[in-house]
Nucleic acid binder design. Structure first.
Length: 582
DNA sequence: ATAGGGTTAG
């Protein structure tokens, strides 16, 4: 129905309804009228009119009308209004027939999908028992979804127990939501796995719930492993399962796997939903192939804000800030409304490419032109932008003027800038303050550095000084050779970033054993000459590794693509795409 | 009427 027809129908039926006598004997007509009205109700004003009408016609104890009222309210984000009417004392509470499971399910569903009211869903789940209404098999997916949103394991177990008690735990939908719910509850994954393993017939939904659960927790290897198991079991993935496994693949930086997944989609004719395309864009960008991501983006027939943001963030990560910014401008020209995440993307693009004025412009425009209130992340981007550009003083002033309390991330980007700019005293002062106010921050320095590399469909992970690999001997010989060759080419070790209190020779040795050098040696040993090497670091690349990798790319004539915690470095012929600005 | 999904500063 188009808008004007809808409005006319609305007017017509309203006129008719108001002519009905109160407590009309023609209950069916009154009921039908109300249901039709609710069906075409699109505004809150209409809803309150219908409310009045329901009372006038004495339909406040008609379950059919009440349920429709609840679901319409839910669509209009007004479930609170509906539930306070439905369960108000003026409604006849003694009439138990008034409420049925369908009505409660509608209310529970509405609250479960409303962001801030998951607890309300559980409240109504309890309320249904006090009214003597028993849950049915449709009740549990809604309640479990609310539990997933709350993320409380004990609550989840309680509802699980309840579902068992009423015999709904063998329902496929209930089981699948149960898996999802447990995956969303901190320590619950193992419980999810138990439900998953005990399910007699696992469909694609169950697999995606479990794979997605692992992926969200950063247990990407397990996610990919489970996807492989799924293929062995002969279950064909659908687009949602693909999104789940792709997010794990993206996390691992496993480009070969990503390409294989792309061909899997083609082979199995999986529908290319917007979400799936977005996941592919993100994967290609974060596995080192932004151009491929751009190509996919251009081919998409319809895009969402997430598609734009993914490709903007992707370009930014590769240091292609100008392209990212111009894409953002195109997006605005095409009247796609940016959201807060899109602004984080464009601001970080400015930051990584030193576009200070542009950054200021976007930051100011987000509130002025788009009514988006900047969050701590946006302030963080601005501080980072100023800090990286060497404007440490301006960054500090910005922090002092911001209306939000700065967090550790913000302080750390200033400290990093201080080190880079030789403002050691200032950096130290801030560091000391930070340690005093947030003693926990030390834990951040204790994450061990590791580097991953994909080779022949296998992921290899190395930590500093790693000797666990069976090629270890050759790897260390290769590293010695690398060291000799790059020194000859002019490489000088940068030992200033080594924090340990040891002498220079040992410091050099410590650098020499950094995980990314091990991974590069491993790659040089196992890949064909002239082919690109791709590695993924879990931390920011250190200055010495950055310098060494530049030399390695030249001496061994290899393109080396490094993804670190924040961004990409493309090393080629002795130079890096970040132009030493990272 | 019911289940699983994408982008986020360093």
């Amino acid at each position: 129905m188009n808008h004007s027809i809808r409005t006319n129908v609305w007017r017509g039926i309203t006129t008719l309804a108001l002519q009905l006598p109160s407590y009309t004997s023609e209950r069916r007509l009154a009921e039908q009228t109300c249901l039709t009205l609710l069906h075409s109700c699109t505004t809150l004003t209409n809803l309150t009119q219908i409310h009045t009408l329901i009372l006038k016609l004495g339909l406040h104890n008609n379950p059919l009308v009440l349920t429709k009222f609840a679901s319409t309210s839910s669509l209009l984000n007004a479930i609170h209004y509906a539930s306070s009417f439905l369960f108000s004392p003026s409604n006849n509470h003694n009439d138990l027939l008034l409420y049925d499971a369908f009505l409660f399910n509608t209310v529970i569903r509405a609250y479960a999908q409303t962001h801030a009211s998951k607890f309300k869903a559980l409240e109504f789940y309890k309320t249904m028992f006090t009214y003597g209404v028993l849950p049915n098999k449709f009740t549990y997916p809604f309640v479990l979804k609310a539990c997933a949103g709350i993320g409380d394991l004990n609550l989840g177990k309680l509802v699980h127990g309840s579902a068992v008690k009423f015999g709904f735990d063998d329902d496929r939908h209930v089981q699948n939501t149960m898996i999802h719910m447990y995956c969303c509850c901190g320590e619950g994954v193992e419980f999810a796995r138990k439900v998953f393993d005990e399910s007699p017939k696992m469909d694609s939904v169950a697999w995606s719930a479990m794979i997605g659960g692992y992926a969200r927790l950063g247990r990407s290897m397990e996610a990919v492993g489970l996807f492989r198991e799924m293929q062995v079991k002969g279950v064909i993935a659908d687009d949602v399962a693909m999104v789940c496994v792709l997010s794990a693949c993206t996390d691992l930086g496993a480009l070969e796997l990503g390409k294989w997944l792309e061909s899997y989609v083609e082979r199995n004719k999986i529908s290319k939903s917007v979400e799936l395309c977005n996941a592919f864009i993100d994967m290609f960008a974060k596995c080192g192939e932004v151009d491929k991501a751009m190509k996919l983006f251009r081919q998409m027939s319809s895009r969402t804000i997430v598609s734009w943001t993914s490709v903007i963030v992707g370009l930014a990560m590769h240091g292609r800030g100008l392209e990212a910014v111009s894409l953002f401008d195109t997006m605005i020209e095409q009247r796609v409304a940016p959201d807060d995440v899109a602004f984080i993307g464009v601001l970080s693009a400015c930051s990584h490419s030193g576009l200070v004025d542009k950054g200021h412009y976007y930051f100011n425009s987000m509130q002025k032109n788009f009514g988006i209130v900047p969050k701590i992340e946006h302030y963080g981007c601005m501080v980072d932008l100023l800090s990286r550009a060497g404007l440490v003083k301006e960054a500090l002033e910005f922090v002092q003027k911001m209306p939000i309390k700065p967090n550790q991330i913000i302080w750390r980007s200033i400290i990093t800038a201080c080190h880079a700019r030789g403002e050691l005293k200032l950096g130290e002062t801030i560091s000391k303050k930070l340690i005093r106010s947030e003693p926990m921050h030390e834990s951040n320095y204790k994450i061990p550095g590791s580097t991953m590399i994909e080779l022949n469909n296998e992921m290899y992970e190395f930590v500093a000084g790693d000797k666990s690999h069976n090629q270890s001997k050759q790897i260390y010989e290769m590293m010695d050779e690398m060291g000799r060759k790059i020194k000859k080419a002019g490489y000088l070790p940068t030992t200033s970033q080594v924090l340990l209190d040891i002498d220079d020779e040992d410091k050099e040795d410590a650098l020499h054993r950094h995980s990314e050098k091990i991974a590069i040696a491993f790659a040089l040993l196992n890949t064909a000459p002239g082919t690109p090497i791709r590695i993924v670091k879990n931390l920011r690349v250190c200055e010495d590794c950055h310098s060494a990798t530049k030399f390695i790319s030249k001496v061994y004539n290899r393109e080396i693509v490094v993804r670190d915690r924040n961004r990409f470095h493309h090393f080629k012929n002795g130079l890096c795409s970040c132009r030493d600005f990272w």
